[in-house]
Design a binder for these strands. Sequence first.
DNA 1: ACACTATTCCATAGAACATTGGAGGATGAG
DNA 2: CTCATCCTCCAATGTTCTATGGAATAGTGT
Lengths: 229, 229
Amino acid sequence: MSSPAKTELFERVARVGKAMGHPARLELLDLLGQGECPVEPLAAAAGLRLSTASAHLQVLRRAGLVTTRRAGTSIRYSLAGDDVATLYAAQRAVAAAHLDDLEPARRAFLGLTTNDPQTDPAVQEISREELLRRVRDGHATVLDVRPAREYAAGHIPGAISIPADELADRFAELPTATTVVAYCRGPHCVLSYDAVRLLTQHGRNAIRLVDGMPEWRLSGLPVAHDPAA
Amino acid sequence: MSSPAKTELFERVARVGKAMGHPARLELLDLLGQGECPVEPLAAAAGLRLSTASAHLQVLRRAGLVTTRRAGTSIRYSLAGDDVATLYAAQRAVAAAHLDDLEPARRAFLGLTTNDPQTDPAVQEISREELLRRVRDGHATVLDVRPAREYAAGHIPGAISIPADELADRFAELPTATTVVAYCRGPHCVLSYDAVRLLTQHGRNAIRLVDGMPEWRLSGLPVAHDPAA
DNA sequence: ACACTATTCCATAGAACATTGGAGGATGAG
DNA sequence: CTCATCCTCCAATGTTCTATGGAATAGTGT
């Protein structure tokens, strides 16, 4: 009954799902959502061997989710389009809505203690609109705690870049009069949570922007690019 | 470097992708997009053995994509929410946009000959808005060619139900003065293509509605439900 | 042309997945 | 109570996927 042509058609669509069906590949998509990147830094950030990361990237490429471009001696991977970032966000949303054990895992990973991010004593969040309001009124300093490469690939206009692992040594660069609004890669990135906790422990007013850079961009808000390659 | 908590978090999200990474499961999602349904008709429609279909449905259920409800002696499966239908549509869109061999496979399955559905001599399509306009002006008869069960679970208001396999015997029920606009399950369903070709061969004015029932519903347009269970 | 570097390819072993037929469970009908 | 129906669960098989370390490759810069 099942025609081969039908199976073949659904198999094509399934290739996309299959590619998004492995934790390592989802993490690579998460990282690529920040901007194009060579293989080696991707592997390092995801905690993968180089050959493993390369193999996963091939799967993503064959599924049409990422593309490559040669830049000098290295090969830069990037998402094949905004629709891929949107698909990834939709999958996260479905998982969050219908899987009972996702939110506990998320809280465990991010170091959250209470159920509601709005009432967590350690890390509170504001919306993108609220951030824009506070910046306009001069009450907020926007802090990008992602690695320098990702900041360079695109960041919120006016944001200061202090990668999370340098934050403890670079407090001085942050003004004390305003609230610091930290952001990072997105809802599954620990960097801004750690940053807000660190700043708060040192008596600063610090808060987190909901989501991260890809969601900012997908919302149609402006993105600043570093002129440096 | 890769924390177990991080892998665990991404694994949860990957479960959704993995569930959408098999052609049979995508077809089941496609069918469930028409409305809730017991296992046996699903298996029959997808061309699967009962135990195979059941196993796939368990995977979908564990991934949070479908839910079950007991109705007498049978168990009705349905999509866990509109977000699942949206995710499925997004995955189809990404596959269509970035996979070179999807469109050929689609055309082969649906029996299309030219690249552009608007110029295909056999099957032309109109938008949902155009359908509404024509119906309002009395120039169109809407025809639902899906199985009776799916029509009963939700259909375009005013549509006539003639399942595709009965169409050849039931021409008489269709008015001759208006154009027949046939619709079915969606862009990966062959029923309305076959129906339009059949009607056209018999000298009727027939045309296809773009996409199908789930996309109509997700567009926020009204859906009529059969009072019968 | 040379060597260098970033990345892919390869072979393999182990893990996860899909299919199948049949046994087992729950529900409603008689 | 027993039967019939509908579905799930199970165990076994074959298939596909993943990780790994090392070899191979392909552009680049000198």
